[in-house]
Amino acid sequence: MELFLQQVFNGIMFGSTYAIVALGLTLVMGILNIPNFAHGHLYMLGGYVTYFFFATLGLGFWLSLLASMIILGMVGVVMERVVFRPLTGQPPINDFIAAIGSLVFLEAFALAVWGPQGLRITNPYPETFQFLGITMTVQRVLVIVAAAALIVGLHFFMKKTVLGATIEAVAQNREGAMLTGINVNRVSAITFAISTATAALAASFLSPIFMLSPSMGAILGMKAFIIVILGGLGSIPGAILGGYILGLIEALGGGYVSAAYKNVFAFGALILILSIKPTGLFGKKEA
């Protein structure tokens, strides 16, 4: 029972991160109509920027996190402007290639600046406590709470503000949005900023728990991609639920069978769900 609860706790923590990263991916996918393959690498860059402010400059954890979110938000705006916007109206394959080019660039950039060895920031909240017989660290609880707060906040932003509504409008009908007077380019830039800033948030919270390495973006980006397909392309609730499901599958599979098979369970679940429901959990009938 304790092993089970411990794994569920870990699963929810992983799932929180996955949910946030997948949420950012799905938001941008709605706008661009293609997955931003570099999303996992932007997450990686967010982790390193936090490391830079926290470990190199010696700012506090929360200040470093904020700085990382702001800088990554700006990276998102620049990326939309110089990488994707010039490709508007061109075949989708060009966006694919541009996204892959960006991820190669980001990984090489991190490698050049911070080197290949793993880095870790000191855990600002290393205290542990017992709850229901399982051991929790404050940092891990913080990951779960922050993710939940971010998801609720984003939900209200999307559903209750005009700016949030414009993001949905552009995703649902780009030309219709233009014709109502929405500046579609501005909405794209804002969506990118939200997507990259939230990825930086997820990376910042996890950087005291896991090693940072230039290659960490690739596997996370791949998983975010699985989650988005699992949840149904372009579906926000699907991305959130899919994130938690993947986290739980990995943690339970890893805990009961072997941690080495973690990714086997993740990809196995994807194949299983897609064979039963090809459009994903929240997918529309027609893509």
């Binding site: 509504a165 949905e168 409008a169 649902q172 009908n173 030309e175 219709g176 949005a177 014709l179």
Partner: peptide, 8 residues
Amino acid sequence: GRQLFPEL
């Protein structure tokens, strides 16, 4: 073609 926002 109306170009509405179908899910709003």
